[in-house]
Design a protein around this nucleic acid. Sequence first.
DNA 1: GCCTCATGTGTACACTCGTACACATTGGTG
DNA 2: CACCAATGTGTACGAGTGTACACATGAGGC
Lengths: 209, 209
Amino acid sequence: MAERQRRKPGETREKLMQAALTLVGKGRHFASLGIREVTRQAGVVPTSFYRHFRNMDDLGLQLVDELGLVLRRMMREARANGLQADKLIDESVAIFVAHVQANRSFFLFMAQGLAGESRAVREAIRGEMRFFASELGNDLRRLQLMPHLNDADLALACDLVVRTVAFSLTDLLGVSPDDDYQVGEIRRRTTRFLQMVLVGASHWQSDRA
Amino acid sequence: MAERQRRKPGETREKLMQAALTLVGKGRHFASLGIREVTRQAGVVPTSFYRHFRNMDDLGLQLVDELGLVLRRMMREARANGLQADKLIDESVAIFVAHVQANRSFFLFMAQGLAGESRAVREAIRGEMRFFASELGNDLRRLQLMPHLNDADLALACDLVVRTVAFSLTDLLGVSPDDDYQVGEIRRRTTRFLQMVLVGASHWQSDRA
DNA sequence: GCCTCATGTGTACACTCGTACACATTGGTG
DNA sequence: CACCAATGTGTACGAGTGTACACATGAGGC
């Protein structure tokens, strides 16, 4: 056990979370992972698992927390990018696609968790989506786009945008990340969806019965 | 074995599929089900499984086929319902909600399968959604709504509608079927989403750069 | 310098799992 | 009637699973 000395605190914990993500990235579903399987992938003895997590659901919840960080990074980059409205959708979608490719396993976990086995994980992921939508609402209000919408309708539109992007996520995860053509098609298609949603939002007030 | 005599052909096959759905309905994820577990729920010996399915993925694929029947029934009912445009969205959403409640396990399976472990099941479910969207396109064209859209843009709008409904599906499956208030909220919210999408589609052509 | 706590290891046990094999019973076809 | 294919049953085995328990080792506070 000479190599034990250089171990940082929390290292095994990270190895276990990373191991779960790796398995998900290899095509496994999170709900079908077992404790032994994860510890094996992490190169750790099974009993070590319990030093950090009570069970697999607990590990899932902590993964959602890290997922939150990934999403926040993505938002920050999108915000820093540009403010001219015409290219805004296009570039935001591009940033989204890039982040998904760079963190494929995380987003696979997110897509699985939306209809996953653990209610707690499901709701945690939905919470992240709600947060994302509300931040988007803040931005749109600040940029004075959609000034004719009241708060409730703006929130509705933002929710619809986030849902649309989330569904595109499952498209994106279904094709090989190296298949530039398919990825480009999904990017274009997502952009069109969002354009259509925003056209709907622009004409919303005036069209209501 | 006196009770063996009254067995119809294919009965065990149905019992197995129903057993898988039952387990999914109880909150389990399809990806985490095992052959023994399903046969136990079906009241059948494990080896019987292989008389009808090669493995769990195979059973999943056959479940998707049955899911197709459920979706077609739902479409037929929606079509038979009414043709006046103003209430069309409202009533279609109501029919959707009713069918989800009546076939909860099937739709749970569908929601899980969208990001499931088996690529074949994933693509089969997407195929069903594509079919649904194309039928919706036929109807909209026949009813002469959205006459200003060319075929590609109409298909785009229909795809967006189907995605929006599919996401609402996961909302609906997340609340108790007896919670009338929450179910009603989801129904109203879904209706608003679809209205917004259709407003976007109506103003699509004229707004494009 | 010692003691304690957080962390990691090794062993063990009772289950469950997928699946192979041989056998029993049926309904339909020659 | 004899026979076959389809379908169901029972048994068996090796591998994998969750987790309990006792033990080892390092870091930090007294």
